[in-house]
Amino acid sequence: MEAFSLEALKVYAELYLVFCKIGFFSFGGGLAMVPLFVVEFQKQGWMTADQFFDVLSLAQMTPGAIAVNSATFVGNEAGMAVGGRLGGIIGGVFATAGLATPSVVCIIALSEILKKLKTNKFKQAFFFGIKPVTIALILFAGWKIAETTFFEEGFSEIHWTSIILCLIVGVVLKFYEKKVHPIALIIVCSVIGIFIF
């Protein structure tokens, strides 16, 4: 089986290690990883920068975190080159697991530290300062999605239908927040989108 040849196993190990490295050195979310991705893939010969930007647009359109989606795609591509379809499926597992490993290790270590500091005044002051920043970052992330949803590149055109749909959802949330599940809202809006756009 070519998917378990020595060459293929070597690629899986490389995928795991490269994505571990990317995960470990990226702070501040998925898009912050893009420059790291491009540099590493070119070095490994898995993909050119141009190919990767196509992957990135797919990763933004499919469910899940952008970085995880990209890792799975690149793992499939690199694995398939040495081990056929099965190689691709295995490569995706190794790439994705590599990306998750630093998160799991760092978060568990941090959880233990935070447990010890339960009522420490430094910790409380630290979170007091950081929480408003987190809210601002979430607002900014929402704005970034709004920007590409409501406007054409450079604000040359306004998509009023999207804005109206968004406002309607806002009104629904204001009055029926407890009764509706966000997943139901997302599904309904996707269906509406098929008919109105």
Binding site: I145, S162, V169, S190, G193, I196, F197
Partner: peptide
């Protein structure tokens, strides 16, 4: 994944997500 219907559904989902994030903020 650039089927026109998928694109349209995605546009609708995004408009919804903007409202959801705004509400959470």
């Amino acid at each position: 994944f650039e089927h026109p219907i998928a694109q349209k559904a995605f546009m609708g989902a995004r408009a919804c997500i903007v409202a959801l994030i705004g509400h959470s903020v």
